[in-house]
Design a protein around this nucleic acid. Sequence first.
DNA 1: GTTGACACTAGACTATACTCCAAGGTTTAT
DNA 2: ATAAACCTTGGAGTATAGTCTAGTGTCAAC
Lengths: 137, 137
Amino acid sequence: MLKIGQLATQAKVSRDTLRFYEKHGLITPTNRNVAGYRLYSDSDIHRISFILSAKEVGFTLNEIHQLLELEVTKDQKSCEDVKQFVDTKIAIVNQRLAEIKRIKKSLQTLSNACCGGDEPATHCTILEALGDQANQA
Amino acid sequence: MLKIGQLATQAKVSRDTLRFYEKHGLITPTNRNVAGYRLYSDSDIHRISFILSAKEVGFTLNEIHQLLELEVTKDQKSCEDVKQFVDTKIAIVNQRLAEIKRIKKSLQTLSNACCGGDEPATHCTILEALGDQANQA
DNA sequence: GTTGACACTAGACTATACTCCAAGGTTTAT
DNA sequence: ATAAACCTTGGAGTATAGTCTAGTGTCAAC
């Protein structure tokens, strides 16, 4: 069981952020000690890890909350509902995946075009690197 | 040449957003007509498309501004600087790519585990779907 | 047994990214 | 030629996601 400061250090977020997430229903410590200190278990660690990953790739806290709520409300929701909701999210993730690949390609084209030497980067622009790809978005 | 409303419709953002981006140095219309109306060219369209893609995958407007500024300041910056900056961004993009793949996998596992019928989604939870992957983040 | 590091709550403050409104000028279709 | 639909600026307001402060309590080590 980790105290809030320990989890914060491990997850590289602030204590305040953890308390903020708790206030918004994203994560609740498994236990509290006698003094009221939050105590986090392994599953809490997994949970915060998921939250941070999802946030990193552009989900809002609200969306993440919905995803995590599937756990809590699993008995009330029918499989059909869950599947539909998740499939919608998969579509979003796929789109995001395509966009991140496009950006990666642009950045890599840019990096390759750049000599890496001392000459001015006259031909090094993101938009040049994007080229015709830009038309597809 | 498109007027602001036409570009807004095409790019699926509001006029206000375009003016907001302009105020923050992300995009400037190529021309203005006599009355002061903004007129956007094809390259402006590419530019807004890049901005929206980059934003979608988690870059802040500030970071996007830096990426786009490579174009403006290209003559002052050495290739070496540009390459280094871009390579840093590529590393971030790669990390984001890994995380989005992880989330996609979780969502897909979840979707597959769900029957898609009328039974309660008792075993359908994101965190169960995440499984051991959660340890790696 | 006290000091320093850490914990608690409640609430104010901040940054980012819009979004809306007011008061006016322009363009387009009838 | 006039009304609807569009454009302009400036500034206020909102949502999201923290971040900080104040005042207080707890714990671990010396």
